[in-house]
């Protein structure tokens, strides 16, 4: 690598860090964070659940690409698969626990309209399925390890489970986002 190219990359990185610092300082000192999170314990719990769901969105997207590659025999590196699947499990566990904690803060006196209850109940089911699916994929990847490329059946099973986990997560995520919006509008759930 030439000296010129290295110095250019360092300059760009330094500039990016500088700009990020300015942005972070400006945002942190001026943003009405209380308004973003919402008042009380319920607001903090909702924000935490949404944050973890956002993280799962990233890990699941990586997972589904790895799953497609497993399915189509384009083996990713085993180390990448192992790390990705483990991070996926941790993120799903955090989202599930924060969802359970959020559920305990729900006000039972606020009855939701039947139409919203349908989506809420299905969201709960879809979210509940994500953790076992990613744990199953993670266990297959970790237990078979280097032997994974040699067994087509096992590779396809792991790929299928990762794709299914993504599907159920997308159901839960989309319905969760829609219901959060409706909750704001109607003050229910």
């Amino acid at each position: 690598m030439s000296l010129e190219r290295r110095s250019s990359r360092a300059l760009v990185l330094a500039l990016l860090i500088f700009l990020l610092e300015i942005a972070a300082v400006v945002v942190l000192t001026t943003a009405p964070l209380q308004g973003l999170i919402g008042p009380g314990l319920l607001g903090a719990r909702s924000a935490l659940h949404a944050l973890f769901a956002g993280i799962v969105m990233i890990t699941m997207t990586i997972g589904v690409f790895q799953g497609i590659r497993l399915w189509t025999s384009e083996m990713p590196r085993i180390e990448d698969l192992e790390a990705g699947s483990l991070v996926n499990v941790i993120a799903c566990l955090a989202a599930l626990v924060s969802g359970a904690v959020l559920l305990t803060a729900r006000r039972p006196d606020l009855a939701a309209p039947p139409a919203l209850r349908v989506f809420f109940e299905f969201k709960q089911f879809a979210g509940m399925l994500c953790l076992p699916l990613v744990v199953a994929a993670c266990s297959i990847i970790w237990r078979y390890g280097e032997a994974l490329p040699r067994s087509r059946a096992v590779r396809e099973t792991a790929g299928l489970v990762l794709m299914l986990a993504f599907f159920y997560f997308m159901c839960a995520f989309a319905l969760g986002a829609a219901l959060a919006r409706l909750r704001t509008l109607q003050g229910v759930l």
């Binding site: 297959i140 237990r143 067994s151 096992v154 099973t157 792991a158 489970v161």
Partner: peptide, 12 residues
Amino acid sequence: DVTRNGPAQAAT
């Protein structure tokens, strides 16, 4: 036993 697919099927 990595030569067998049983554990993978059990997980799913």
